[in-house]
Structures are given as structure tokens and as C-alpha cells.
């Protein structure tokens, strides 16, 4: 799970209390710089940190030490679920006379069309294929954003003016205040050692 997904609701309730620090951001100019910096942060033991880049930087996953997502595995099984769903749907509606509960009571209706068998497997395959794709695609889309904790319209980082170039041409390293290794002065010093353009503190 992403380290930056949710500002807990307990924090949200203390909105009136004086602003707390969210963490420190360090700005870099090129992918190569952030790559080097990311490796340093990774090796220094920080856990609650992230890189924000305008485009996916090839190799940054490894530099950050991100584990492979299980998304494809889930999607595979969702696809299989789609295949089964389509098979069940078609054989139930067109080849069985069972009555089952599907939100309401429904009954299958086998009726003869152009001499084809009720259970016409070759004819069922196109819909089975389509639903496989549909289930897999919807779960890919839904789960990718869900795992990323998106949509999340408010994020402390959006308060920072520099950070707006994170979607254009600048590369950022964010170290959050909640990281056990986080001590503002020490972390600031550490970030400076990475040779960024700028370092700023972000309020929550």
C-alpha cells in the first residue's frame, strides 16, 4: 500500500489546531538526479517518503525499492470471473429453466432458435470473451486508482507553490513528518546532501 494514501480522519478532525508539518520536499531538475537521490533516501532507511515526477521515470521503481504490484494477479482472476459470469449468464438464461434469486427471482428460458442447441457453446464464446475483457478492464481501472488512494482531491503537497511543477518539468522527493526517522533539522540536512535545487517544508 502506498505510504501517502490517506491523511487519517483523526487528523482531519483537528483541522482547527495550529498547522502541523506534513514533511519536507526537495526539488530536482533531471531524472538522473532524482534517481541518484532516491537511491540515497532508500538506503538511509526512510519509509514514509515518495518521489513525485511529471512522467514515469524508468528505473525509479528500483531506485526507490518499490515492490511489484499484485494488480495483474487480481486482474487475471477478475478476468476469469468475467468468463465464468458470462458462461453462467448465457447457459442460465438460454439453456436452463431454473429459477434463481438474482436481486429478484428470475427464471431461465430455453427456447429454440434456428435449430441451434440450447447449450450452444461456440455461440457463447464471443460474449464470454467480451465479459472477460470488461471485468478485467474495469477491475484494472478501479483497483489501480483504489490502491493509489485516488481520488484524493486534497493533499498537503498541493499547498506548496513549487510543487506545481511536479506535473511539468521538476522532480521532487517528499519525506513525511510521520516517518520514525524524521527529525526536521536532520532530514533537512540529509536532503541538502542530495544536492537539490530547493528544499521546503510543507504544512499539513
Amino acid at each position: 500500500m502506498s505510504a501517502t494514501t490517506k491523511p487519517s480522519s483523526a487528523k482531519a478532525s483537528q483541522a482547527d489546531s495550529p498547522p502541523r508539518s506534513y514533511g519536507l520536499i526537495a526539488e530536482f531538475e533531471t531524472p538522473a538526479q532524482i534517481m541518484k537521490a532516491a537511491e540515497r533516501v532508500r538506503d538511509s532507511g526512510y519509509k514514509w517518503w515518495d518521489c513525485c515526477t511529471p512522467f514515469p521515470v524508468h528505473g525509479l521503481d528500483k531506485a526507490m525499492g518499490i515492490r511489484q504490484t499484485i494488480l495483474p494477479i487480481i486482474v487475471f482472476f477478475m478476468g476469469m470471473a468475467g468468463t465464468c459470469a458470462a458462461f453462467v449468464l448465457q447457459s442460465f438464461t438460454n439453456a436452463s429453466d431454473w429459477t434463481v434469486w438474482a436481486g429478484v427471482w428470475v427464471t431461465g428460458y430455453p427456447f429454440l432458435i434456428s435449430g441451434k442447441p440450447f447449450m450452444s457453446l461456440p455461440a457463447f464464446i464471443p460474449v464470454m470473451f467480451e465479459l472477460t475483457i470488461l471485468f478485467a478492464a474495469l477491475s484494472t481501472f478501479g483497483l489501480m486508482f483504489a490502491f493509489n488512494g485516488l481520488p484524493q482531491l486534497y493533499h498537503p503537497l498541493f499547498r506548496n507553490k513549487r510543487f506545481r511543477r511536479a506535473t511539468d518539468d521538476r522532480f521532487f522527493i517528499v519525506i513525511e513528518a510521520r516517518d520514525p526517522h524524521y527529525f526536521k533539522a536532520r532530514t533537512w540536512e540529509f536532503l541538502e546532501s542530495l544536492d537539490p535545487i530547493a528544499i521546503e517544508e510543507v504544512e499539513d
Binding site: P7, A12, L153, Y154
Partner: peptide, 15 residues
């Protein structure tokens, strides 16, 4: 320069 920021509670609204 002010920029529109979604209020914090908008995150709670999404679910």
C-alpha cells in the same frame, strides 16, 4: 497568488 485548493473534507466526501 491564490490557487484553489479542495477543502480537506472533500477527501471524506469521496467515499
Amino acid at each position: 497568488m491564490s490557487r484553489f485548493l479542495f477543502p480537506k473534507w472533500s477527501n471524506a466526501l469521496l467515499p
